[in-house]
């Protein structure tokens, strides 16, 4: 999976550079989020701008990251969901769990 990480010292931005976030590649994202929180990062934004498709495994990887963050008093926010991806969050009611923002800047400012 192609992930691009940017750390400005305050917030780590994880850009998912894939059209699909599914059972084939989501384990990598799950591991990477786990690693960031284990390293002590407290503010992480996952940018889903390029993701056009998400399945239950992709959602599960983000839920895993969310739980990991919550257990360490850290924060995970999501940004830039495409309409089909947003509809999957709504179907599974996960839009009530995550802090979701329209842009990366809004997500970063919300910390």
């Amino acid at each position: 999976m192609n992930l691009k990480l940017e750390d400005n010292g305050q917030v780590v931005l994880v850009q998912v550079k894939e059209e699909r976030l599914d059972a084939h590649n989501s384990e990598h994202l799950k591991q990477e989020l786990g690693r960031l929180f284990e390293e002590g990062k407290t503010r992480v934004v996952v940018d889903l701008k390029e993701v056009r498709f998400i399945d239950s495994s992709g959602l599960g990887a983000l839920v895993s990251g969310f739980k990991n963050a919550s257990s360490r008093q850290a924060g995970l926010k999501l940004s830039s969901l495409q309409s089909q991806v947003k509809s999957m969050f709504e179907l599974t009611r996960l839009h009530r769990v995550f802090d979701i923002y329209t842009t990366v800047d809004e997500a970063i400012e919300a910390f």
């Binding site: 239950s56 599960g60 839920v63 009611r93």
Partner: peptide
């Protein structure tokens, strides 16, 4: 709600 797995059949 916060399980990592098990949403497939529901979807």
């Amino acid at each position: 709600e916060l399980e990592d797995h098990g949403r497939g059949l529901y979807i």
